[in-house]
Amino acid sequence: MIEFQQVYKTYAAKGREIQALKPIDLEIPAGRIYGLIGHSGAGKSTLLRLINRLEDPGGGRIKVAGQDVTQLNASELRAFRRQVGMIFQHFNLLSSQTVADNVALPLKLAGEFSRQQIRDKVQRLLQRVGLEDQANKYPAQLSGGQKQRVGIARALATDPKILLCDEATSALDPQTTAQVLDLLNEINRELGLTLVLITHEMDVIRRICDQVAVLDAGELVEQGPVSEVFLHPQHPTTQRFVQEAEQMNEEKLHEDFDRVEGRILRLTFKGETTYEPLLAEVARQTGVDFTLLAGRIDRIRDLPYGQLTVAFKGGDLEAARQRLQDAGVHLEELR
Protein backbone atom coordinates (compact mmCIF):
# COMPACT_ATOMS: atom_id res chain seq x y z
CA MET A 1 0.00 0.00 0.00
CA ILE A 2 1.14 3.51 -0.80
CA GLU A 3 -0.01 6.22 1.60
CA PHE A 4 0.24 9.95 1.20
CA GLN A 5 -0.28 11.90 4.40
CA GLN A 6 -0.57 15.66 4.05
CA VAL A 7 1.98 15.65 1.24
CA TYR A 8 2.52 18.93 -0.54
CA LYS A 9 5.00 20.40 -2.96
CA THR A 10 5.98 23.96 -3.74
CA TYR A 11 8.35 25.36 -6.35
CA ALA A 12 10.23 28.60 -6.19
CA ALA A 13 10.03 30.30 -9.56
CA LYS A 14 11.19 33.87 -10.13
CA GLY A 15 11.07 34.60 -6.43
CA ARG A 16 7.48 33.48 -6.13
CA GLU A 17 6.30 30.31 -4.45
CA ILE A 18 4.15 28.18 -6.67
CA GLN A 19 2.09 25.46 -5.07
CA ALA A 20 2.34 22.43 -7.34
CA LEU A 21 0.48 20.19 -4.93
CA LYS A 22 -1.78 21.25 -2.11
CA PRO A 23 -1.67 18.97 0.96
CA ILE A 24 -2.93 15.61 -0.24
CA ASP A 25 -4.09 12.49 1.58
CA LEU A 26 -4.30 9.41 -0.56
CA GLU A 27 -4.22 5.65 -0.12
CA ILE A 28 -3.28 3.41 -2.99
CA PRO A 29 -4.13 -0.22 -2.21
CA ALA A 30 -1.61 -2.96 -2.98
CA GLY A 31 -2.12 -5.20 -5.99
CA ARG A 32 -4.53 -2.87 -7.75
CA ILE A 33 -4.34 -0.52 -10.69
CA TYR A 34 -4.71 3.04 -9.48
CA GLY A 35 -5.22 5.88 -11.93
CA LEU A 36 -4.39 9.55 -11.44
CA ILE A 37 -6.05 11.76 -13.98
CA GLY A 38 -5.63 15.46 -14.56
CA HIS A 39 -4.84 18.04 -17.21
CA SER A 40 -1.24 18.98 -17.85
CA GLY A 41 0.03 21.05 -14.97
CA ALA A 42 -2.47 19.56 -12.54
CA GLY A 43 0.34 18.01 -10.51
CA LYS A 44 -0.16 14.36 -11.41
CA SER A 45 3.34 13.94 -12.75
CA THR A 46 4.77 15.43 -9.56
CA LEU A 47 2.58 13.18 -7.43
CA LEU A 48 3.82 10.09 -9.30
CA ARG A 49 7.48 11.12 -8.96
CA LEU A 50 7.09 11.62 -5.23
CA ILE A 51 6.53 7.86 -4.86
CA ASN A 52 10.06 6.95 -5.99
CA ARG A 53 11.43 10.30 -4.84
CA LEU A 54 12.47 11.52 -8.29
CA GLU A 55 10.99 14.61 -6.70
CA ASP A 56 11.13 15.46 -3.04
CA PRO A 57 8.00 16.58 -1.22
CA GLY A 58 7.81 19.97 0.47
CA GLY A 59 6.44 18.19 3.51
CA GLY A 60 4.25 15.35 4.71
CA ARG A 61 4.80 11.61 4.80
CA ILE A 62 4.84 9.10 1.98
CA LYS A 63 4.68 5.51 3.16
CA VAL A 64 5.24 2.55 0.89
CA ALA A 65 4.46 -0.80 2.53
CA GLY A 66 4.68 0.91 5.91
CA GLN A 67 8.11 2.42 5.24
CA ASP A 68 8.40 6.20 5.24
CA VAL A 69 10.27 6.89 1.98
CA THR A 70 10.85 10.54 2.85
CA GLN A 71 13.29 9.38 5.57
CA LEU A 72 15.50 7.19 3.35
CA ASN A 73 19.19 8.06 2.98
CA ALA A 74 20.88 7.93 -0.43
CA SER A 75 21.80 4.25 -0.47
CA GLU A 76 18.47 3.16 1.07
CA LEU A 77 16.73 5.20 -1.59
CA ARG A 78 18.63 3.43 -4.38
CA ALA A 79 17.69 0.04 -2.93
CA PHE A 80 14.07 1.17 -2.60
CA ARG A 81 13.98 2.41 -6.20
CA ARG A 82 14.87 -1.07 -7.40
CA GLN A 83 11.56 -2.23 -5.97
CA VAL A 84 9.70 0.37 -8.00
CA GLY A 85 9.64 0.05 -11.78
CA MET A 86 8.80 3.01 -13.98
CA ILE A 87 7.74 3.46 -17.59
CA PHE A 88 7.54 6.72 -19.48
CA GLN A 89 5.57 8.49 -22.17
CA HIS A 90 8.62 8.78 -24.42
CA PHE A 91 9.99 5.40 -23.32
CA ASN A 92 13.39 6.82 -22.32
CA LEU A 93 15.34 3.90 -23.71
CA LEU A 94 19.07 4.17 -24.29
CA SER A 95 19.41 4.67 -28.02
CA SER A 96 23.02 3.45 -27.96
CA GLN A 97 22.12 0.05 -26.50
CA THR A 98 20.31 -2.94 -27.95
CA VAL A 99 16.91 -4.02 -26.70
CA ALA A 100 18.53 -6.78 -24.64
CA ASP A 101 21.09 -4.39 -23.13
CA ASN A 102 18.36 -1.90 -22.26
CA VAL A 103 16.43 -4.57 -20.39
CA ALA A 104 19.64 -5.80 -18.75
CA LEU A 105 20.60 -2.34 -17.48
CA PRO A 106 18.73 -2.36 -14.15
CA LEU A 107 20.18 -5.81 -13.40
CA LYS A 108 23.69 -4.65 -14.28
CA LEU A 109 23.30 -1.57 -12.09
CA ALA A 110 22.10 -3.70 -9.17
CA GLY A 111 25.43 -5.52 -9.40
CA GLU A 112 24.12 -8.71 -7.82
CA PHE A 113 23.74 -10.93 -10.85
CA SER A 114 26.11 -12.98 -12.99
CA ARG A 115 26.21 -12.52 -16.76
CA GLN A 116 24.42 -15.82 -17.24
CA GLN A 117 21.69 -14.85 -14.77
CA ILE A 118 21.20 -11.55 -16.54
CA ARG A 119 21.02 -13.20 -19.96
CA ASP A 120 18.39 -15.70 -18.79
CA LYS A 121 16.34 -13.05 -17.06
CA VAL A 122 16.41 -10.74 -20.07
CA GLN A 123 15.23 -13.55 -22.30
CA ARG A 124 12.32 -14.35 -19.99
CA LEU A 125 11.35 -10.68 -19.76
CA LEU A 126 11.42 -10.24 -23.52
CA GLN A 127 9.26 -13.34 -23.89
CA ARG A 128 6.74 -11.91 -21.46
CA VAL A 129 6.37 -8.75 -23.54
CA GLY A 130 6.50 -10.66 -26.84
CA LEU A 131 9.78 -9.27 -28.15
CA GLU A 132 12.13 -12.26 -27.89
CA ASP A 133 13.02 -11.97 -31.59
CA GLN A 134 13.95 -8.27 -31.32
CA ALA A 135 16.67 -8.66 -28.68
CA ASN A 136 19.53 -7.45 -30.85
CA LYS A 137 17.80 -4.51 -32.46
CA TYR A 138 18.28 -0.91 -31.42
CA PRO A 139 15.34 1.15 -30.13
CA ALA A 140 15.31 3.30 -33.28
CA GLN A 141 14.42 0.19 -35.28
CA LEU A 142 11.27 -0.47 -33.25
CA SER A 143 7.73 0.90 -33.42
CA GLY A 144 6.31 2.98 -30.56
CA GLY A 145 4.39 0.06 -29.12
CA GLN A 146 7.45 -2.16 -29.23
CA LYS A 147 9.53 0.53 -27.52
CA GLN A 148 7.02 0.72 -24.69
CA ARG A 149 7.15 -3.08 -24.38
CA VAL A 150 10.91 -2.81 -23.98
CA GLY A 151 10.27 -0.12 -21.36
CA ILE A 152 7.92 -2.47 -19.53
CA ALA A 153 10.38 -5.38 -19.71
CA ARG A 154 13.11 -3.10 -18.35
CA ALA A 155 10.87 -1.84 -15.55
CA LEU A 156 10.10 -5.42 -14.51
CA ALA A 157 13.74 -6.54 -14.53
CA THR A 158 14.37 -6.13 -10.81
CA ASP A 159 11.05 -7.80 -9.85
CA PRO A 160 9.50 -4.62 -8.45
CA LYS A 161 6.37 -4.60 -6.34
CA ILE A 162 5.15 -1.33 -7.77
CA LEU A 163 5.05 -0.12 -11.37
CA LEU A 164 4.72 3.60 -12.03
CA CYS A 165 3.34 4.49 -15.45
CA ASP A 166 3.95 8.06 -16.59
CA GLU A 167 1.51 8.69 -19.45
CA ALA A 168 2.64 5.33 -20.80
CA THR A 169 0.24 5.30 -23.75
CA SER A 170 -0.03 9.00 -24.57
CA ALA A 171 2.45 8.80 -27.43
CA LEU A 172 0.81 5.74 -28.98
CA ASP A 173 -1.96 5.29 -31.52
CA PRO A 174 -5.32 3.88 -30.29
CA GLN A 175 -4.66 0.31 -31.40
CA THR A 176 -1.20 0.18 -29.84
CA THR A 177 -2.59 1.85 -26.72
CA ALA A 178 -5.07 -0.99 -26.36
CA GLN A 179 -2.30 -3.58 -26.69
CA VAL A 180 -0.07 -1.90 -24.14
CA LEU A 181 -2.98 -1.53 -21.70
CA ASP A 182 -3.77 -5.24 -22.13
CA LEU A 183 -0.17 -6.04 -21.29
CA LEU A 184 -0.27 -3.86 -18.17
CA ASN A 185 -3.52 -5.51 -17.16
CA GLU A 186 -1.96 -8.94 -17.59
CA ILE A 187 1.08 -7.94 -15.53
CA ASN A 188 -1.13 -6.72 -12.71
CA ARG A 189 -3.11 -9.98 -12.74
CA GLU A 190 -0.26 -12.42 -13.08
CA LEU A 191 2.41 -10.77 -10.96
CA GLY A 192 0.16 -9.04 -8.48
CA LEU A 193 2.01 -5.76 -9.03
CA THR A 194 0.57 -2.48 -7.80
CA LEU A 195 0.25 -0.15 -10.77
CA VAL A 196 0.00 3.59 -10.43
CA LEU A 197 -0.63 5.33 -13.69
CA ILE A 198 -1.13 8.91 -14.66
CA THR A 199 -3.00 9.97 -17.75
CA HIS A 200 -5.15 12.71 -19.18
CA GLU A 201 -7.42 10.23 -20.90
CA MET A 202 -10.45 8.92 -19.02
CA ASP A 203 -10.62 6.05 -21.46
CA VAL A 204 -7.33 4.65 -20.11
CA ILE A 205 -8.76 4.84 -16.59
CA ARG A 206 -11.97 3.12 -17.67
CA ARG A 207 -10.17 0.29 -19.39
CA ILE A 208 -7.75 -0.86 -16.74
CA CYS A 209 -8.04 1.00 -13.46
CA ASP A 210 -9.75 -0.19 -10.29
CA GLN A 211 -9.62 3.17 -8.58
CA VAL A 212 -9.07 6.71 -9.68
CA ALA A 213 -8.15 10.07 -8.23
CA VAL A 214 -8.83 13.28 -10.10
CA LEU A 215 -6.37 16.14 -9.79
CA ASP A 216 -7.16 19.69 -10.66
CA ALA A 217 -4.70 22.56 -10.14
CA GLY A 218 -2.68 20.67 -7.52
CA GLU A 219 -5.74 19.58 -5.62
CA LEU A 220 -7.35 16.18 -5.24
CA VAL A 221 -10.94 16.88 -6.23
CA GLU A 222 -12.45 13.43 -6.46
CA GLN A 223 -11.44 9.85 -5.78
CA GLY A 224 -12.99 6.41 -5.54
CA PRO A 225 -13.67 3.21 -7.47
CA VAL A 226 -13.69 3.85 -11.21
CA SER A 227 -17.24 2.45 -11.52
CA GLU A 228 -18.44 5.19 -9.17
CA VAL A 229 -16.35 8.09 -10.41
CA PHE A 230 -16.77 7.30 -14.08
CA LEU A 231 -20.50 6.67 -14.01
CA HIS A 232 -21.41 9.34 -11.49
CA PRO A 233 -18.80 12.09 -11.68
CA GLN A 234 -19.36 14.85 -9.14
CA HIS A 235 -16.71 17.49 -9.75
CA PRO A 236 -16.92 19.61 -12.92
CA THR A 237 -13.38 18.58 -13.95
CA THR A 238 -14.28 14.92 -13.64
CA GLN A 239 -17.48 15.46 -15.57
CA ARG A 240 -15.54 17.04 -18.38
CA PHE A 241 -13.11 14.14 -18.50
CA VAL A 242 -15.96 11.66 -18.68
CA GLN A 243 -17.75 13.62 -21.40
CA GLU A 244 -14.55 13.68 -23.44
CA ALA A 245 -14.13 9.94 -23.07
CA GLU A 246 -17.74 9.26 -23.97
CA GLN A 247 -17.58 11.76 -26.80
CA MET A 248 -20.69 13.32 -25.36
CA ASN A 249 -21.78 16.71 -26.36
CA GLU A 250 -24.05 18.12 -23.67
CA GLU A 251 -25.34 20.92 -25.88
CA LYS A 252 -26.30 18.64 -28.72
CA LEU A 253 -27.92 16.27 -26.27
CA HIS A 254 -30.04 19.05 -24.83
CA GLU A 255 -31.11 20.06 -28.33
CA ASP A 256 -32.31 16.50 -28.75
CA PHE A 257 -34.28 16.83 -25.52
CA ASP A 258 -36.43 19.51 -27.09
CA ARG A 259 -37.50 17.14 -29.82
CA VAL A 260 -38.99 14.46 -27.55
CA GLU A 261 -41.89 14.45 -25.15
CA GLY A 262 -42.12 13.10 -21.62
CA ARG A 263 -39.61 12.59 -18.86
CA ILE A 264 -35.95 12.06 -19.53
CA LEU A 265 -33.93 9.78 -17.30
CA ARG A 266 -30.34 8.57 -17.33
CA LEU A 267 -30.24 4.87 -16.57
CA THR A 268 -27.04 3.27 -15.33
CA PHE A 269 -26.72 -0.51 -15.34
CA LYS A 270 -23.80 -2.29 -13.72
CA GLY A 271 -22.75 -5.90 -13.81
CA GLU A 272 -25.14 -8.64 -14.91
CA THR A 273 -28.19 -6.37 -15.26
CA THR A 274 -26.46 -4.93 -18.31
CA TYR A 275 -27.32 -8.10 -20.18
CA GLU A 276 -30.95 -8.39 -19.12
CA PRO A 277 -33.78 -7.37 -21.48
CA LEU A 278 -34.95 -5.05 -18.76
CA LEU A 279 -36.06 -2.01 -20.69
CA ALA A 280 -38.41 -3.85 -23.03
CA GLU A 281 -39.80 -5.88 -20.16
CA VAL A 282 -40.55 -2.82 -18.07
CA ALA A 283 -42.09 -1.04 -21.04
CA ARG A 284 -44.38 -4.00 -21.70
CA GLN A 285 -45.47 -4.36 -18.12
CA THR A 286 -46.04 -0.68 -17.33
CA GLY A 287 -47.16 0.56 -20.70
CA VAL A 288 -44.54 3.28 -21.03
CA ASP A 289 -43.05 4.09 -24.42
CA PHE A 290 -39.43 4.97 -24.59
CA THR A 291 -37.01 6.69 -26.94
CA LEU A 292 -33.24 6.15 -26.66
CA LEU A 293 -31.42 9.47 -26.91
CA ALA A 294 -27.89 8.46 -26.11
CA GLY A 295 -26.11 5.53 -24.63
CA ARG A 296 -23.16 3.28 -24.33
CA ILE A 297 -22.66 -0.30 -23.31
CA ASP A 298 -19.07 -1.13 -22.40
CA ARG A 299 -16.85 -2.30 -19.59
CA ILE A 300 -15.05 -0.61 -16.75
CA ARG A 301 -12.02 -2.85 -16.44
CA ASP A 302 -14.01 -6.13 -16.16
CA LEU A 303 -17.29 -4.71 -15.02
CA PRO A 304 -19.93 -4.51 -17.75
CA TYR A 305 -22.00 -1.37 -17.62
CA GLY A 306 -24.57 0.46 -19.62
CA GLN A 307 -25.56 4.07 -19.46
CA LEU A 308 -28.59 5.14 -21.43
CA THR A 309 -30.37 8.44 -21.74
CA VAL A 310 -34.01 7.57 -22.27
CA ALA A 311 -37.20 9.59 -22.77
CA PHE A 312 -40.31 7.96 -21.29
CA LYS A 313 -43.83 8.76 -22.43
CA GLY A 314 -47.26 7.54 -21.31
CA GLY A 315 -48.03 4.49 -19.19
CA ASP A 316 -47.26 4.21 -15.50
CA LEU A 317 -43.90 5.94 -15.13
CA GLU A 318 -43.81 5.56 -11.35
CA ALA A 319 -44.20 1.80 -11.62
CA ALA A 320 -41.54 1.70 -14.33
CA ARG A 321 -39.14 3.63 -12.13
CA GLN A 322 -39.80 1.31 -9.25
CA ARG A 323 -39.18 -1.79 -11.33
CA LEU A 324 -35.94 -0.43 -12.74
CA GLN A 325 -34.69 0.52 -9.31
CA ASP A 326 -35.63 -2.90 -7.96
CA ALA A 327 -33.53 -4.44 -10.71
CA GLY A 328 -30.55 -2.42 -9.52
CA VAL A 329 -30.57 0.32 -12.16
CA HIS A 330 -29.42 3.73 -11.03
CA LEU A 331 -31.76 6.48 -12.14
CA GLU A 332 -30.95 10.11 -12.63
CA GLU A 333 -33.62 12.57 -13.60
CA LEU A 334 -32.56 14.89 -16.43
CA ARG A 335 -35.94 16.43 -17.22
Binding site: N52, L54, L77, R78, A79, F80, R81, R82, V84, M86, F88, H90, N92, L93, L94, L105, P106, L109, A110, T158, L164
Partner: peptide, 11 residues
Protein backbone atom coordinates in the same frame (compact mmCIF):
# COMPACT_ATOMS: atom_id res chain seq x y z
CA UNK B 1 14.34 11.42 -19.65
CA UNK B 2 17.17 8.93 -19.98
CA UNK B 3 18.87 10.34 -16.90
CA UNK B 4 15.56 10.21 -15.06
CA UNK B 5 14.94 6.60 -16.12
CA UNK B 6 18.39 5.59 -14.93
CA UNK B 7 17.84 7.38 -11.61
CA UNK B 8 14.55 5.54 -11.23
CA UNK B 9 16.45 2.25 -11.56
CA UNK B 10 18.41 3.15 -8.45
CA UNK B 11 21.65 4.07 -10.23
Amino acid sequence: GIIEATQAMGA
